[in-house]
């Protein structure tokens, strides 16, 4: 009886696995392989690698270091999109070193998740949308 069940189980398993294994076409498998091996860089990482001046090079590298060795070791905890580090990078690039840093400190003090009613919600990532804006409240 046990031997019979074993043979049956083996046969059913073989058929089942055969079906499952053929459920993906070679094209789909290639697509999955491409997705799992390719590194798609975010626009902020790409932006950090482009610079027009020494201070942009300095802050860009600081951002890349933070993203690679600090931020990657922990789950995402920022309430906003773009995140505070991305905001700082873009603010410095767009507004210059002084205004950009001051703008970042304002953003940093608001990053507490206690005021969701002040911002629209990004329904995909479930974070609040707060793009870089100058003191006139114009989007940069």
């Amino acid at each position: 009886m046990i031997r019979f069940i074993n043979i049956n189980t083996c046969l059913i398993s073989l058929i089942l696995f055969n079906v499952i294994s053929s459920a993906q076409t070679p094209e789909e498998l290639n697509e999955l392989k491409r997705k799992s091996t390719s590194k798609i860089e975010s626009k902020y990482i790409q932006s950090a690698k482009q610079y027009n001046s020494e201070y942009q090079l300095f802050f860009g590298n600081m951002f890349l270091f933070y993203k690679k060795y600090v931020s990657s070791q922990d789950a995402s905890s920022c309430s906003f999109t773009p995140s505070c580090s991305e905001y700082a990078l873009m603010a410095i690039k767009k507004q210059g070193i002084f205004e950009g840093i001051v703008n970042f400190w304002d953003r940093f003090s608001r990053c507490n998740g206690m005021s969701p009613e002040y911002y629209p919600l990004d329904n995909v990532h479930k974070v609040l949308i707060d793009p870089v804006r100058d003191w006139h409240y114009n989007e940069k």
Partner: peptide
């Protein structure tokens, strides 16, 4: 000091945001 400067900048931005 950085938080204070950010607070001043953010206050102007907050008033403009409210008007907007």
């Amino acid at each position: 000091f950085s938080f204070y400067a950010g607070n001043l900048y953010g206050s102007v931005k907050a008033a403009n945001k409210k008007n907007f």
